[in-house]
């Protein structure tokens, strides 16, 4: 997955953009995410991956270094190899502009 790639969930409205790439498969709602140009199916998020995504939050997979930014929120949970991604907090700096 290249940095800047957009991926959409087939199971909910979630859309993410890859901020730091890694060679892993990203799932949402328990289903493999597809290229933004791909087709969505009507699948539902599976019950163990239905925690939802939050717009504007960055999610990280510690094992691979993958980082994605949620650009559209949905009902599914992001995961890699069955492990849910965690929210990455921004390193806030005093505003300089």
């Amino acid at each position: 997955m290249k940095t800047g790639t957009r991926l959409v969930s087939v199971a909910c409205d979630t859309e993410v953009m890859v901020v730091r790439s890694a060679d892993v498969d990203l799932h949402c709602g328990g289903h493999l995410m597809v290229d933004a140009v791909g087709e969505r199916s009507a699948a539902e998020p599976s019950s163990e991956f239905a925690g939802g995504t939050l717009l504007g939050k960055r999610y990280a997979h510690a094992g691979s270094g993958l980082q994605v930014l949620c650009v559209k929120a949905g009902q599914g949970t992001l995961s890699v190899n069955g492990v849910a991604l965690s929210i990455l907090e921004s390193k806030q700096l005093p505003s300089s502009d």
Binding site: V19, G56, K57, R58, L69, S90, Q92, L93
Partner: peptide, 9 residues
């Protein structure tokens, strides 16, 4: 921007 600013913060 993504690293240092909270979205809609």
């Amino acid at each position: 921007v993504l690293d240092t600013i909270d979205f809609l913060g």
